[in-house]
Amino acid sequence: MAEDVHHLAKLACQRKPRKRPGCLPKSLSVVIGPPSVTLKDEGDSENNGDSITHDQVVSSKSVTGPLTNIANVDSPTVPSVQPFVDWDIVMKDKYGEKRFKEIATIGQGGSSRVVRVLGEDQVVYALKIVDLTHADRSTKTGFINEIKLLQQLQGSAHIITLIDYTWDKQCNKLLLLLEHGEADLANVVQQHKLTVNQIKTYWRDMLLAVKAIQDVNIVHRDLKPANFVLVRQTLKLIDFGISSSIRAEVTSVIPSDRCGTISYMAPETLQDQDNSFKVGRYSDVWSLGCILYLLVYGYTPFHHVKGTVQKMLAIVNPDHHIAFPHVPADLTRALDILRSCLKRNPKERPTISELLAHPFLHWQS
């Protein structure tokens, strides 16, 4: 535990001197209790109740509510803030202060919650607040990992921007200030029937996001619609708490825990291999195929299988047929992608570069 605390402190000291946020005021309570996170079977609505325990950090959920135009999503309406407003959150340290007005909680779970806040600069942000008081080693390692990977990926147009972060030993809280997403893909799919051009646009954005992480040898391990958020009409990838870095010369890693969301998990990540589970670049390709399946059909490939264990068995069973129902003519090219991404043998799945070059993205409907 002492090593984890030292690592967090070391991370906080690695940045260039600048204004940094500090400890939250005592009036703001963010203690949610001891870590209790689950491997969710989100199904089609991202709200299925089937679950089993694992070490995943629950990610932020984006803005909910109807969108009038998916192609032109506006930033959420925020209350006007007067010059002498009582700020809900004051992040301060020896470098200065940053003040925020809390608008709403947009996600929570385990030891963390994410709130939509309005800054003194009148900009809306997402603030991830993590209480480390009861955090175990695995949870702390997950947050350390998330910060390191986000730092590594800054500058990518399809990765969420980490604006600032801080850790304070006195209040034992970690805060990550992130750019705000107007809506996540899960909510967009629930509320709207997508056009072919919208499916293509979102698919290209997702591929470019995964290409960005693969270019620096990162496997996300939890690709799902809720982890892609719209930021100024561009899908960006979030939540790197359970991601893994792999050496350039290898193709996979074998983590000790089973992480992810069942409806989007590749077969090899569910199969026990000497008390571990193998994941690699092609595991993320399977997950992308499941998301595209959802965009095309409105449900996931194994939506009809009820129960967590039954769904896991169906995913790994090569004799369980994945259905590809008829689609309109302008989506037939997408079926070729789905069939190739959803092959149970990882080596038979396409690369991200091959998917970006596929005619589906370049054919004008």
Rank of each mutant, 00 (worst) to 15 (best):
I144W: 00
V58M: 15
I213E: 03
A248E: 14
T64G: 09
K347F: 04
H134K: 07
I147V: 15
L270T: 10
G107N: 02
Q14G: 14
P267T: 08
T261E: 03
L153Y: 02
A357S: 15
L118I: 11
K169Q: 13
S27V: 12
N145P: 05
R116S: 07
Q14R: 13
S75K: 11
Y202P: 00
F302E: 02
K236Q: 07
L175K: 11
L177N: 00
Q122H: 12
Q191A: 07
D336M: 01
K148I: 08
K173W: 07
F143L: 10
L356N: 12
Q170L: 09
S340Q: 15
Q198Y: 06
L28A: 10
D41F: 01
I70T: 13
S283F: 03
R344Y: 04
T105C: 07
T195C: 11
V305C: 05
N275W: 03
E348I: 00
V78M: 11
G65Y: 03
I129Y: 04
K16M: 11
V37Y: 00
V219M: 11
G119D: 01
F84H: 09
D131Q: 01
L175E: 04
L39H: 14
R204L: 05
R99N: 13
W167I: 09
S245V: 11
I242H: 03
W167K: 00
A2Y: 13
L127A: 05
P35C: 02
V117T: 11
Q14S: 13
S51I: 04
T77M: 08
D239I: 02
L223F: 10
W286E: 01
P325G: 02
V115H: 10
I70Y: 13
V78N: 10
R339Q: 15
I160T: 09
R333S: 05
Q108G: 02
D272P: 00
P255A: 05
G142Q: 14
L295K: 02
A314I: 10
A2W: 08
P255L: 07
Q364N: 11
W203C: 00
S276K: 13
Q151K: 15
Q271C: 01
D239L: 11
V327Q: 10
